[in-house]
């Protein structure tokens, strides 16, 4: 009944104000910060997909007795305050550390307050969100399948790409998506390492913080809501995919 009334109402004055409002909302969001944040999240996820695999493989299959130390280090960013991590990354990138000096002698400028520095800090910050799902899914691959591959003459590398990785796809998707969502929302590390340079290091969460500082709650709300929806969408897709994958593929335990 109401469905017929509302469109007629909208077509007159209500529709016009709605459109203006939407326009205002879109204008209020700092799209440059959004593009930069997406760029950062995609770069970090892609790099961690590459860097995380060997680390996760080693954690899943190494028999080294001190392995737990490495596992603890790799998990540290989960519990460490981002400002602490950010502080040390900043120190490492700056001209007072050997790495920082080496980089400056190589390129002529410091990594601190640059997009590359931001990527480096974010990789460290999101490392456990990639490595832990990867390692967990590698470890759950049936060891007999790995043994069978070896007895059929396959090298460890071939076994990884033909058996372990294909059977770990849900874990790989989870790790990449968690990294993506986590990097989208990071704040402390970015602020410490990158600062707030529009178009270079100003990410969405910094933008929100800035708006709140300036008492522009409407704009902060629009941006925050968009970020919330985006992260929720990513996680929904991941969990949805994984559930499906679990029902059709064996758990790997026999």
């Amino acid at each position: 009944m109401r469905g017929r009334v509302v469109p007629a109402h909208c077509r007159r004055d209500g529709g016009a104000t709605g459109f203006t409002k939407t326009l205002q909302t879109i204008m209020a969001i700092d799209w440059q910060a959004f593009r930069l944040t997406l760029q950062l999240a995609v770069t970090v996820s892609a790099l961690l997909l590459v860097l995380g695999l060997p680390i996760a493989y080693w954690i899943a299959f190494s028999g080294w007795r001190w392995k737990f130390l490495v596992e603890a280090v790799a998990a540290l960013p989960i519990v460490l305050p981002p400002t602490v991590l950010g502080f040390y990354v900043l120190m490492a990138l700056g001209p007072h550390s050997p790495f920082g000096r080496w980089w400056i002698s190589l390129t002529g400028h410091t990594l601190a307050f640059t997009f590359t520095g931001l990527v480096l800090g974010s990789i460290l910050y999101s490392l456990p969100f990639a490595v832990q799902p990867f390692a967990a899914s590698f470890a759950s691959v049936d060891r007999k399948l790995i043994a069978a591959s070896a007895t059929l003459g396959a090298s460890p590398m071939r076994t990884f790409f033909r058996v372990i990785a294909p059977l770990s796809i849900p874990g790989l998707i989870t790790g990449a998506a968690l990294t993506f969502a986590h990097t989208m929302g990071e704040f402390g590390v970015v602020l410490m390492v990158g600062g707030n340079i529009p178009g270079v290091t100003r990410t969405v969460s910094i933008d929100i913080f800035d708006r709140v500082q300036a008492s522009d709650y409407t704009a902060a709300n629009q941006t925050a809501l968009l970020l919330l929806v985006l992260c929720f969408a990513v996680l929904t897709i991941v969990y949805g995919l994984n559930r499906k994958a679990w029902t059709i593929s064996p758990t790997g335990k026999l």
């Binding site: 007999k144 399948l145 043994a147 069978a148 007895t151 059929l152 090298s155 033909r162 026999l254």
Partner: peptide, 16 residues
């Protein structure tokens, strides 16, 4: 293992 030319069929079969 991969160089031994030993064929091994497990109880769990371990088909991929």
């Amino acid at each position: 293992v991969a160089k031994r030319r030993v064929g091994y069929v497990f109880q769990s079969l371990a088909l991929f």
